[in-house]
Design a protein around this nucleic acid. Structure first.
Lengths: 145, 145
DNA sequence: CAAATATATATTCCATTTCATATATTATAA
DNA sequence: TTATAATATATGAAATGGAATATATATTTG
């Protein structure tokens, strides 16, 4: 009788957390090497293909807490990476834009990120890569309601 | 011409982080409802099918930082959930065991966790579930070296 | 074997995150 | 309309997490 599979190795939440952490950590080392805060990278990447999101909308993507994101965005503005503009239609909201400086930074990192992803996925066929991503996308949209 | 897929929605690290967070968060709400710290749950679950791990070994599973885990384990011991025993063979090491009280707690949560996972995966066939998990396990072992 | 190096865990100090709540604005109801 | 509730973001005190380092024990080297 061989040992049963340990709980965590068959537990989806654990497999996701572990693979997520392993994949991210490798790349985050590269981000840190450029001197950038990892959270800044996540925020810039989330804004990279369409800024002008409100804080809440951005938060739905980056999945921080609202106060955490609020403070990060304020810091990033003070460092010249983002700009915050009060909403015209709804004056409670703050719309967030990438500055040229932030854009330059994120563009460099996007290229590195794609390169890193290619490395991670090198052993998989294109079909397999898409299968994995599709399953994750399905999971996400199911959980978002 | 339709919009291209946003970067993040095609980026593996993001898909993993997002799905991980969404899956975990749902269950963590249940954990918190029982009054337990989420990190405690992660530690107990990691020990659930074989305790007596050293701090380092445990850390390889839970993927915290060593000082963070060290502090958490100390707190959990003071709250009666774990026991720390100095290694016989290597006296630098600390072996970590679940107390009966900790065991009772984790057993309840393991049952809930499995139930929650079943819900999350309900829409997938058994074969698909295994496919997803296998791909994640492969990814993990490739990244661990 | 003694000295030097490596390893396992703990601790300290500081930056960041979180919880609860405040403020400002908008939407709804009476 | 005015009062009430809801929503978006900000803020402050307290808890948490991380980087650097300390301590204790083991291993290696000359």
């Amino acid at each position: 009788m061989s040992k049963p599979t340990p709980f965590v190795d068959d537990y989806l939440a654990y497999l996701l957390a572990r693979s997520s952490k392993l994949v991210s950590e490798q790349f985050h080392a590269q981000v840190k090497a450029t001197g950038l805060n990892v959270n800044y990278w996540r925020i810039l990447a989330s804004l990279s293909d369409g800024d002008g999101l409100s804080l809440n909308q951005l938060n739905e993507r980056v999945l921080f807490n609202q106060p955490t994101l609020s403070k990060l965005v304020a810091r990033m503005e003070s460092e010249g990476l983002l700009e915050r503009i009060k909403g015209e239609k709804d004056k409670r909201s703050i719309l967030i834009y990438i500055t040229p400086q932030g854009r330059q930074l994120v563009n460099q990192l996007l290229a590195k990120a794609k390169w890193h992803e290619a490395e991670v996925l090198a052993k998989y066929s294109h079909a397999q890569q898409e299968l994995l991503k599709d399953m994750l996308r399905q999971l996400i949209s199911a959980l978002e309601n």
